Simulated scan of single mutants.
Amino acid sequence: MQQRCPDRRQQFLFEKGGGCVLIDNEELRLAPGSLLVLPANCPYQFRLTPDTDGFAFSGSELFLRTRVAQAMFTTPSSFWESYYKPYTYDDLTGEHQREKRKRIFTEVSIAAARFGLGCDAAIMAYILVVVVESTLPKLLQGWQPPTKMDSSDTSLLYQYQILVENHFREHLTIESYCQMLGVTRNKLIEVCKQLSELTPLELVHKRMILEAKRELLSSMKTVNEITFDLGFIDYAYFSRFFKNQTGFSPTHFRSLGNKYTA
C-alpha cells in the first residue's frame, strides 16, 4: 500500500539489508549505506529484506524549507530543483563518510530519546545538516555564484510557493499571484527561473501534478472526483493536462501503481 507524509520531509539511512522503494511508479534500489530522502506529499512504498536496519527521521517541511531559504540564498538554482524531488544518495561507500553519517543520525536518536520535544530545535538542526550535506555535493561541481541574487529574491520565491500551496486548486492566473506578492510578472519570472529553473506557471503545474499523483496512488477517490478536487472543469481537460506532464493518462498511471501493490 502506498504511503505518504503530508507535511514532513523524511530521511532513511540504511545500515544493512535494503531492497527497493516505489516512487511515482519508478523503482529505486536501496543498499547498505544508502540515504533516501522523501519530500512532503511524496507517495512511496517499500519492499525491504527482513534484515533491514538503520535510521528514519522526519522533520517539518515548512521548518526545513524556511531555514534553508534563510541560510542558503546563494545556492545554485539546481539545489531547489533537487530539494523538491525524492532521491537516493549512494556515495557513502567510504568508511569515513559512513561513520560521519551514522554519528549524526545516532546523535539525533539519542537526543530525541532523552529530551523528546524539549530539544526539537536541536534535532531539526541535525536533520538540516543531513538535508544540506546530502544535496549539495553533486550540485556544486562547476557552479559559479549568480550575478544577481539576494535574500529578498529567495524570500519572494518562498512566498510564491506558499501562495501556490494555498491556491493551486483555484487555477489563478500568474497576474493574480503577482498582485498578491506586489511584484511585476517579469520579476516573478526572473526569480523563479533563477532559483528553480522553472517558470511560475511550471511551478503551479508541478504542484498540481504532485497532488494528482498522490491522490491517484494513495486515495480511493474516482478519477472524476480527483478531477474536480483539483479544480478542473472536466475529465477530458484534466486527462490531457496529466498526460502532457507525465506521459500517462490518469487511469493508466493509477493502474501501474495498482500492479505494483497487487
Score class of each variant (00 low, 15 high):
34 S>R: 08
65 R>L: 02
95 E>A: 12
151 S>Q: 15
7 D>H: 03
85 K>P: 02
253 F>N: 04
177 Y>S: 01
124 M>Y: 07
84 Y>K: 10
36 L>P: 01
105 F>W: 00
197 E>P: 02
147 T>A: 12
19 G>M: 08
80 W>L: 11
181 L>H: 05
194 Q>N: 10
45 Q>Y: 11
252 H>V: 04
10 Q>C: 04
12 F>R: 04
218 S>P: 00
123 I>V: 13
238 F>P: 00
161 Q>G: 15
143 W>R: 14
66 T>D: 06
99 E>F: 10
262 A>V: 15
204 V>I: 06
76 P>I: 10
70 Q>H: 12
69 A>R: 08
50 P>Q: 12
70 Q>K: 11
209 I>D: 03
125 A>Q: 09
108 V>M: 14
245 Q>G: 00
42 C>S: 13
164 V>S: 03
259 K>Q: 15
127 I>G: 05
257 G>Q: 14
95 E>D: 10
115 F>L: 10
160 Y>N: 06
174 I>H: 06
154 T>F: 08
20 C>Q: 13
154 T>E: 06
238 F>Q: 07
100 K>I: 03
135 T>C: 15
28 L>V: 03
44 Y>R: 06
116 G>Q: 13
188 L>D: 00
63 F>D: 12
159 Q>K: 14
209 I>G: 02
5 C>G: 08
202 E>C: 00
162 I>Q: 05
57 F>I: 05
8 R>C: 08
153 D>H: 12
74 T>E: 15
139 L>Q: 06
207 R>I: 07
153 D>K: 14
188 L>R: 04
212 A>W: 01
121 A>G: 09
99 E>H: 00
241 F>C: 03
